[in-house]
Structures are given as structure tokens and as C-alpha cells.
């Protein structure tokens, strides 16, 4: 009875088979060698939409994750007793596998990119929350003491002293969250959320090595580019760290 359900690769999604057409002159698809540059040259345009969808998924999930985690971290910074429950709550969201999360949301949000974005956001929260709280906690007490001494209010201390000093940690958290989300967003295809996963799993793509390699490589390159952008942003926002970063 389980035999009937095997060969999962052919059943994934109700996806349009005509999507997969060979426009190259060679026999790339029939031969299915590990990598066929000719096919890529003829078909690079089919990766444009999935790449854009992937960018939207990652951008929305990281932005939403950052906003929520930031609010939670500020709350937990003011009221220390919230730290443990927030950490536990985001920990549960982080632990639940995204692919399972998609389908837990299914009865509520249905299939689509919104479902994927919610699940990816839930995954992100803990990474970002943890880094913001660590960054805030690592601000030396002398510094906040001095800030209080010159007459800053608690919210001024937060905005003008603690947050800037915590910036390297915050950016580090964003880098981890973004890179992980780019990789994880390939699974959004299972929630019908689009993205580069469609070029891996849809129809007969799952057995076509060149296609898998191209889609996977785009995801890896996207992760590296995002990581680089955030790294540079971090250096701009925390100039005093530059010397340490170089050494």
C-alpha cells in the first residue's frame, strides 16, 4: 500500500507540464548530463520570474521578521521577565519545520505566497530576536550609566546609545536570518508560493540535473549577495567597528 504512494517526485503539485519545454538545439534533456551549458544559454529567461518571486518571499519574510523581532526585543529589554517566554515562543516557531508550517497554515491562509511568507517569518524571529537582545545586553553598564549621568532619558539611551552599540550584533542576526531564508524559501513551492523551488520540483524538473543546479546556484548567489550587502551596511552603521573587522 505504501508502494502506491512511492515515487513522490512525479506527484508534486498540480503544475503545468508545458512549463518544461526544451528550446535548445542539443539533447540536453534526453541526455540529462550533470550540467549542460547549452540548455542554460537557451533557457536563462525562465529563471527570471522565479528569481523575482524568491526575492519577494525573502524580502517580505526578513522584513516582517525583523519588525516583529525588534518590537519583541525592545519589550523584553524593558521588561526582563518577558525574555524567557519570548525566547521559548520564538524557539518553538523556529523548530517547527517550514514545510510543516505551510500546511498547518493551510486551513487558515490557504495556498500561496502569503502562507510561505508567514512560515518563513516565523522561522526568522528567533534568530533576529536573539541577536538584538544579546547586542543590547552586551552594552557595557558604564556606558549606559554615563548616558544617564549626562541626563538622557531611558528612551534616549535606547535610541542614541544602546541600539547603535548593539548594531553589529543586530546586523549579524539579520545576515544569518537572510541567508537561511534564501535557502529555505526554495521550499515555498510546496505551499504554492513560487520562488526558485518551482524550477527544482515542478513536473519533470525534479529529474533534470542542469535545471536543479541552475536554480540552486541562483539561490546560493542570492544568499551571498544579500550577505555582502548586509555586511557593508553593518560597516557603514558601525564605523568604530571597522578597524576590528579588518584585523
Amino acid at each position: 500500500m505504501i508502494e502506491a504512494a512511492s515515487n513522490g517526485m512525479m506527484r508534486v503539485g498540480a503544475i503545468d507540464q508545458s512549463f518544461f519545454t526544451d528550446r535548445s538545439s542539443g539533447n540536453c534533456i534526453q541526455d540529462n548530463k550533470l550540467f549542460c551549458p547549452g540548455w542554460v544559454a537557451d533557457n536563462y529567461d525562465r529563471y527570471v520570474d522565479p528569481t523575482l518571486q524568491h526575492l519577494v518571499l525573502v524580502g517580505s519574510a526578513v522584513a516582517a521578521g525583523f519588525l516583529i523581532a525588534f518590537a519583541l526585543a525592545i519589550l523584553a529589554h524593558r521588561h526582563r521577565f518577558l525574555q524567557t517566554p519570548f525566547l521559548a515562543g520564538t524557539g518553538i516557531l523556529y523548530t517547527i519545520p517550514s514545510i510543516s508550517f505551510f500546511f498547518l497554515l493551510l486551513p487558515i491562509t490557504g495556498r500561496g505566497s502569503l502562507t510561505a511568507i508567514i512560515a518563513l517569518t516565523a522561522f526568522n524571529l528567533q534568530i533576529i530576536f536573539r541577536n538584538i537582545t544579546t547586542g543590547l545586553r552586551n552594552v557595557p553598564p558604564d556606558v549606559t550609566e554615563a548616558a544617564r549621568g549626562i541626563g538622557l532619558t531611558p528612551s534616549q539611551i535606547l535610541r542614541q546609545v544602546e541600539l547603535p552599540l548593539a548594531m553589529p550584533e543586530i546586523i549579524a542576526g539579520l545576515r544569518i536570518a537572510t541567508v537561511s531564508t534564501v535557502a529555505l524559501a526554495t521550499l515555498a513551492v510546496f505551499a504554492n508560493g513560487g520562488g526558485l523551488g518551482t524550477e527544482i520540483v515542478t513536473g519533470s524538473n525534479i529529474t533534470f540535473k542542469t535545471g536543479i543546479i541552475v536554480a540552486g546556484s541562483i539561490a546560493v548567489i542570492m544568499a551571498i549577495v544579500f550577505d555582502g550587502i548586509l555586511l557593508l551596511t553593518g560597516k557603514l552603521l558601525a564605523p568604530w567597528k571597522r578597524k576590528q573587522a579588518i584585523s
Binding site: S180, V182, L187, K209, I212, A219, V220
Partner: peptide, 12 residues
């Protein structure tokens, strides 16, 4: 390691 797309790895 974080940048490895799980789906592409399994499929490939």
C-alpha cells in the same frame, strides 16, 4: 552551510 538550499541538495 546556511546558504545550501535544502531542496536543491536533495533533488540533485
Amino acid at each position: 552551510g546556511r546558504a545550501i538550499p535544502e531542496l536543491a541538495l536533495i533533488a540533485l
